[in-house]
Amino acid sequence: MGHWFERNIVEPGKLPLLLALASFVLTFLITRTITRLIRAGKGPFRNVSSGGLHIHHVVPGVVLTLVGGFGAIASGRDSVAAMVFAVLFGTGAGLVLDEFALILHLDDVYWTDEGRKSVEVVVLTFALVLLTLAGFSPLGVDEVDADERQDRAVFVLSLAVNFLFVLIALLKGKFRTAVIGTLVPFVAVVGALRLARPGSLWARKAYRRRPRARARAGLRAYHHDRHWDRAMRRFQDVVGGFQERVPLHPGHGPDGDGPEDGGPPDRR
């Protein structure tokens, strides 16, 4: 195990990336645990306010991300400082993406269905960084051998073809497939060859005069969403705590952590 870690993580210079990923996941899990305790009115944790202004944890997250990112660039890859800044960056990224839905909607949707996007983005980010850590390169560059790299025409053509599959998958309304496909070209190929999702740009253009294709696409999307969305929502409920029953406390809003003065409840 030690030899594998040295050869695959330390020697290629991936230790900062591993530390950033570990701190990212740990920060997200700790943050979700604390916010769930605050919502339930348990434990010593409380919302942070300053002068009547509620401070979301995305604020310190942005600061830590900036400090960690710029610090890592300035410190060099193999220094101890780079490891420290990688941890700061991962911690900040975990805080920021935990409130991704708030940034996207410009509204406090932390415990709503819109807030599920935060969990989804965190999982997607974890998958992408883990693939990068495992040695996958964007658009299948790692699958091109040394001879092909020397042949610029083959190299550029390989990149162009992989990018085309990613673009088609995106046009077909398969965002997750397209993103993962940038690192795993086979995933992009599958997404590009299968039917487009109803309502996507590809479906509106290509299936406009093909009612059977529209019907097949709609049926496939229905069965896919019925199976996978249910599993995803269960996972989000476990990780994000969306379906937890929250006791109402006197002077608190319906989420269990609102202001005591009777003002609008804080959804955090």
Rank of each mutant, 00 (worst) to 15 (best):
residue 38 I to K: 09
residue 39 R to Q: 03
residue 40 A to T: 14
residue 43 G to Y: 05
residue 44 P to M: 10
residue 48 V to W: 01
residue 51 G to C: 08
residue 51 G to E: 08
residue 51 G to A: 05
residue 52 G to D: 10
residue 55 I to A: 12
residue 56 H to T: 13
residue 57 H to D: 07
residue 58 V to I: 15
residue 59 V to N: 01
residue 62 V to K: 15
residue 65 T to G: 07
residue 67 V to H: 08
residue 67 V to E: 11
residue 68 G to N: 10
residue 70 F to K: 12
residue 71 G to E: 05
residue 72 A to C: 11
residue 75 S to Q: 06
residue 76 G to F: 08
residue 77 R to N: 07
residue 78 D to Y: 02
residue 80 V to E: 12
residue 81 A to I: 10
residue 83 M to S: 15
residue 85 F to V: 00
residue 86 A to L: 04
residue 86 A to Y: 02
residue 87 V to D: 01
residue 90 G to E: 01
residue 94 G to L: 02
residue 95 L to V: 04
residue 95 L to W: 00
residue 96 V to K: 00
residue 98 D to S: 15
residue 99 E to G: 11
residue 102 L to Y: 11
residue 102 L to V: 12
residue 109 V to E: 05
residue 110 Y to H: 09
residue 114 E to S: 01
residue 117 K to M: 14
residue 118 S to C: 02
residue 120 E to S: 07
residue 120 E to W: 11
residue 121 V to Q: 01
residue 122 V to A: 11
residue 126 F to L: 13
residue 127 A to S: 08
residue 128 L to E: 07
residue 130 L to Q: 12
residue 131 L to A: 11
residue 132 T to P: 11
residue 134 A to N: 04
residue 135 G to C: 05
residue 139 L to T: 11
residue 141 V to K: 07
residue 142 D to V: 09
residue 144 V to Q: 03
residue 147 D to V: 00
residue 149 R to S: 12
residue 149 R to T: 15
residue 150 Q to E: 14
residue 150 Q to K: 13
residue 151 D to I: 04
residue 151 D to M: 04
residue 154 V to F: 02
residue 154 V to W: 00
residue 155 F to Q: 05
residue 156 V to W: 03
residue 156 V to A: 06
residue 156 V to S: 03
residue 157 L to G: 12
residue 159 L to M: 09
residue 160 A to T: 01
residue 161 V to Y: 06
residue 164 L to G: 07
residue 165 F to K: 01
residue 167 L to K: 08
residue 167 L to T: 15
